[in-house]
Computed example of a mutant assay.
Amino acid sequence: MKPTIAGILGGVIILCGCATLWFSLSRSPGPANTALVDVAGTNAVTDQVGRALRTVFSYDPTQMDRTSVAAQEVLTGAAMQQYNTDFEAAKKHAAETKQVLTTAVRSIGVTDLGPNSARLLVFIDRQTVQGDKHESAAAQLLINAEKVGETWKISGIRFL
């Protein structure tokens, strides 16, 4: 029995199809942490979390209610509960002392980025003004963020 050209081509096509299927199924799904390779995703989470931190950690005693409402829009889960508990004490202190707090984000590094969650290391400067008294302090934060719709919200805050 002599192989024909059509038979040989059919065998090659079947062999190529099997190889394609094998390589498609055995391919790794990609990295779970895309912080270093997803530039657009990393920029989106750093921009939104940076703005959220400035909102949450800055206040003027004459606008505390507005600050509280704005914070509710950028926080979720445990971070919202923590903020609501701590904010009452901060509100009372600010009203008594007339202290203004301004927070500036100096640097953000995304340590872990997934489709709907992220972890960030954040360096902030906090400036307090109370009458003629000016003070500043630096802090490091470990932030957990969750994507809600198209918006990144802070879900956890830990001071380091």
Results as ranks from 00 to 15, higher is better:
D132M: 07
A104R: 11
A71V: 03
M64I: 15
K92C: 01
D125L: 13
T85W: 02
A52G: 10
A90K: 11
S136D: 07
A137F: 02
E135V: 06
Q81N: 08
T128S: 15
Y59P: 05
A104K: 14
S136C: 04
T62C: 03
H93V: 07
A139R: 15
T97R: 13
L53D: 11
D60P: 07
Q72F: 03
D125W: 04
Y59F: 13
G77N: 06
I124S: 08
L121Q: 12
E88L: 13
R126P: 02
Q81V: 10
G131F: 04
K133Y: 07
D65T: 07
A79S: 06
H93Y: 08
K91H: 04
E96P: 01
A78S: 07
Q82L: 09
K92S: 14
H93N: 12
V74S: 10
D112H: 13
T128N: 03
A137Q: 14
E73L: 11
A52L: 12
S68Q: 10
N116D: 13
V110A: 14
A70E: 05
D112N: 15
A89I: 07
N84Y: 00
V100S: 02
T55C: 01
K98E: 09
R51L: 09
A95H: 04
Q72V: 07
V110F: 00
S107D: 14
F87Y: 14
R51E: 05
V74Y: 08
A118D: 01
T76R: 09
T76L: 04
A52V: 15
S136V: 06
I108Y: 00
D86E: 11
E96K: 15
A104H: 03
E73Y: 09
V129N: 12
L101T: 14
V122T: 14
T103W: 02
D125K: 12
A137P: 05
A94T: 03
A89C: 03
E73I: 05
N116V: 12
